[in-house]
Computed example of a mutant assay.
Amino acid sequence: MKESEKTVARIGMVSYLNTAPIHEKWKSTVQTDRWQLVEAPPATLNKKLAAGEIDMGFVSSYEYGRHSEKYKILSGLSISANGPVGSVFLFSHVPMSQLDKAPVLFSAQSETSVSLVKIILEEFQGVQPCYSTGDLQSPIDEKFKAVLAIGDDALRLAEKSTYLYEYDLADIWKHKTGLPFVFALCVVRDEFCTGQPEMLAEIHRHLLKCRDEGKKDLEEICALAAQRIPMSKKKCYQYLSGIEYDLGEQKRKALETFFDFLIKRGDIDKKALPLKIYANLQ
Rank of each mutant, 00 (worst) to 15 (best):
F259R: 02
Q36M: 15
R34P: 06
L240S: 02
G76V: 07
D246E: 13
C210F: 10
K251T: 07
L121K: 02
L169A: 02
A272S: 10
D212V: 09
V38C: 15
Q109Y: 11
K145Q: 05
R228I: 05
I229W: 04
I140W: 00
L262R: 05
L99Q: 02
F258R: 09
P139Q: 00
W173V: 06
T19L: 14
I54M: 03
Y167I: 14
D33H: 14
L207T: 07
F258P: 08
L45E: 07
I73A: 08
P84D: 13
L247T: 05
T162P: 08
Q109R: 08
S232W: 08
D246Q: 08
E24R: 05
G214N: 10
P42H: 03
K145L: 07
D33W: 09
P230S: 04
E198V: 11
V14M: 02
K276V: 12
E191D: 10
L116W: 02
G12C: 06
D135G: 01
V182C: 10
F89R: 01
A20F: 03
D217Q: 12
S241V: 03
L164R: 13
G242E: 02
D190P: 05
A50F: 12
L185P: 03
R205P: 04
K276T: 05
F261L: 11
K72I: 03
F192I: 13
S232T: 12
L262K: 07
Q36S: 10
K47H: 09
E111R: 13
S68L: 11
S138H: 00
T19A: 06
I243P: 00
E249N: 14
E191C: 04
Q128G: 10
G57C: 08
S4E: 05
K47G: 05
H206K: 14
M56G: 03
I172A: 00
L136G: 00
K234Y: 14
F181A: 07
M13D: 03
I79N: 05
E111G: 03
Q227K: 10
Y278R: 09
